[in-house]
Design a protein around this nucleic acid. Structure first.
Lengths: 147, 147
DNA sequence: TTTATTAGTTGAGGGGGTGGACTATTTTGG
DNA sequence: CCAAAATAGTCCACCCCCTCAACTAATAAA
């Protein structure tokens, strides 16, 4: 048991913490050069939520509201999102624009092609199912707040 | 097939790209506040390599040498590493100090405890083995340069 | 020995983040 | 009903990370 946990920790840090950046760099798509991963994640969240406020995004991305504020400014400038009307004049309701949807679509296409290439080259068919099972589980676990 | 790849892409981005930061934040150990993940990774690499130059670290961490340069300055200042002698006077041979080893030890302890808690709470015994298998595979794949 | 090449530093410029101060707009509650 | 408290966002200083290009110093090559 002890030994397995130790290996799990090593694998976790290698694969998750340090491997992720390597993948992002490998994709090397012009979009990933123009928009940061954080901006992309935010755009994806805005598409998913349809209409969302700055403070909700801060909760979803687990960062300070000031970080969100500057991010919004950048996405607005690039016209990937727009401000919708809101009852509460303190808040800014955000929604994705058509340009934003297109950017997400392109980025997802690139990522899909990359992972597909990766998998078909190195992972057997039955391993893909295992991958899915483990990652579904991981997602579920990581979503939990209190651990 | 298509459907599984799509799910794999979603899971990949959710778990790897965005889940990782959540985990790092969750650990909430004073060490992770004092030293950045990049500094920790570098320290780990220096311990592993025993004696290593700046340019080799740049290759290992896949960043520009100037990024490494400032990182080294910080680790030196914190006395977690030291400069060893070198034949080539252009290079700086680096090695870890006792203080550096201690920091790594503490950080690994915290991470181990965290992951152990996470796993024992949410993952069955036989799933741990599956986790190990998939992550070993992922590590191997991600280590490949040309994809 | 003169000319490349290599190692590392530095500085500008642009990402990411926090926390606190500040404005504007609700809400609350005496 | 109106003053006090809470909420939503922005802005600022300050930190980390990164790249790229200019620069110095030292070694390798011609």
């Amino acid at each position: 048991m002890d030994q397995r946990i130790k290996e799990a920790v090593d694998l976790f840090t290698d694969v998750m913490v340090y491997g992720t950046e390597k993948v992002i760099k490998s994709i090397d798509h012009p979009l990933w050069n123009e928009y940061s991963p954080e901006q992309m994640q935010m755009l994806k969240l805005i598409r998913k939520e349809e209409r969302v406020t700055s403070s909700r995004l801060a909760v979803l991305q687990s960062v300070h509201k000031s970080a969100i504020s500057s991010r919004i400014k950048k996405l607005l400038q690039k016209e990937l999102i727009r401000i919708a009307d809101s009852d509460d004049k303190r808040t800014k309701m955000l929604e994705i624009t058509d340009a934003g949807r297109e950017v997400l679509k392109q980025s997802e296409k690139a990522l899909t092609e990359y992972i597909e290439k990766l998998m078909s080259a190195h992972i057997e068919d039955e391993e893909i199912d295992q991958f899915l099972i483990i990652f579904r589980k991981l997602k579920k676990i990581l979503k939990m707040d209190g651990v």
